[in-house]
């Protein structure tokens, strides 16, 4: 691995003030709390289907999206709660979608794997491994064609790298110099299969270089390292220099999905990664470097607990979609007007 621990950036060069640094912590804490409570609600039978939690990978979504503007597009896979909330979707509407309610981001039609919000340019969670990468490439084509001042950031897991769609997308993105940042979240497992059991190589960013795309490994447990790498990649894209590829070395603390007993890795391995839990290391740094006090951190933790409680209450109280609306939205002629939500 080529994680640059020794180059771990200190806080000050990021030009982030105290509020912004605490903001990053707050967003990560919100994602963590959201996922932990989601797991409870799943166990209580209020959330169904496949549900993939983001716990452990918070630094990637929060760091990456903090380097983007509201106008920038995000396209991601099915482990999408983190990117969706980081991108600015109201977490109430995310929870409502998990509950299948009509106030959800996708009016209860999508569920956990298919969050969407055009208002914040979150262009969807997709559940065919690698299938969204051609779509992200096409969005970047639209941005380039329309000469818009924004980029596309697309997130995917290490499993997607084996798909043909991945290779077709990287090749075309570089060929056409499209403004897209490929953010690989290498959490070391494609479902229950370790990277070394599925991939001929351990590192993936050299594959991007094979297409002429600059690729680099980033410490995905360090929100500031992620933010800095995405900032650079975004600048490149905006300068018309084409795509970049960032391999975030990260880890999920929970199993692949709520239906995975997680027997393919040891407790010890999880514990080692938990030492690098961004929800632990980042606030420690903030305190150590006197950006924040323990009290401030605790206040934030209390606030996000309350916020997620409100999300659950909102989701519980929201109505189910109307049975009469089953067939709506298959065709463009069916407009969502009259439904709840924005």
């Amino acid at each position: 691995m080529t994680i640059r621990h020794e180059e771990r950036p200190v806080l000050t060069p990021h030009n982030l003030d105290e509020t912004e640094l605490l903001g990053l912590f707050r967003r990560m804490a919100l994602l963590r709390e959201f996922e932990e409570r989601t797991a409870e609600q799943y166990a209580r039978g209020r959330i169904w289907g496949f549900c993939h939690l983001y716990t452990g990978q918070e630094a990637v979504a929060v760091g990456a999206v903090s380097a983007l503007t509201r106008e920038d597009y995000v396209v991601t896979a099915y482990r999408d709660h983190g990117q969706a909330i980081a991108k600015g979707i109201d977490p109430k509407r995310v929870m409502a979608e998990l509950f299948g309610k009509r106030t959800g981001t996708s009016l209860g039609r999508g569920g956990s794997m298919h969050l969407f919000d055009r208002e914040v340019n979150f262009m969807g969670g997709y559940a065919i491994v690698g299938g969204h990468l051609p779509i992200a490439t096409g969005l970047a084509l639209a941005v380039q064609y329309r000469e818009e001042d924004r980029i596309v950031a697309t997130f995917f897991g290490d499993g997607a790298v084996a798909e043909g769609a991945f290779h077709e997308s990287l090749n075309l993105a570089q060929l056409w110099q499209l403004p897209v940042v490929f953010v690989l979240e290498n959490n070391l497992y494609g479902m229950g299969t370790a990277v070394e059991r599925a991939s001929a190589t351990r590192d993936f960013h050299p594959r991007a270089e094979a297409y002429g795309i600059p690729g680099e490994a980033v410490d995905g447990m360090d929100v500031l390292a992620v933010r800095e790498a995405v900032t650079r990649a975004r600048d490149r894209a905006l300068d018309g220099k084409g795509p970049s590829f960032l391999e975030m070395k990260t880890y999920r603390f929970r199993p692949h999905s709520m239906s995975d007993p997680g027997r393919y890795r040891t407790r010890g391995e999880v514990d080692i990664w938990r030492q690098r839990d961004p929800l632990r290391t980042f606030p420690e740094r903030l305190i150590e470097e006197e950006v924040a006090t323990r009290e401030q951190i605790d206040v934030i933790l209390g606030e996000v607990e309350e916020e997620v409680r409100e999300c659950i209450a909102f989701a519980e109280e929201s109505p189910h979609p109307e049975p009469a609306d089953l067939m709506r939205f298959v065709w463009a002629a069916d407009e969502p007007e009259g439904e709840d939500g924005p």
Binding site: M123, I135, G138, L139, L141, A142, R146
Partner: peptide, 10 residues
């Protein structure tokens, strides 16, 4: 796929 993405992008 890029046609789909381009359509979503306007």
């Amino acid at each position: 796929g890029s046609a789909i993405g381009a359509a979503m992008g306007g």
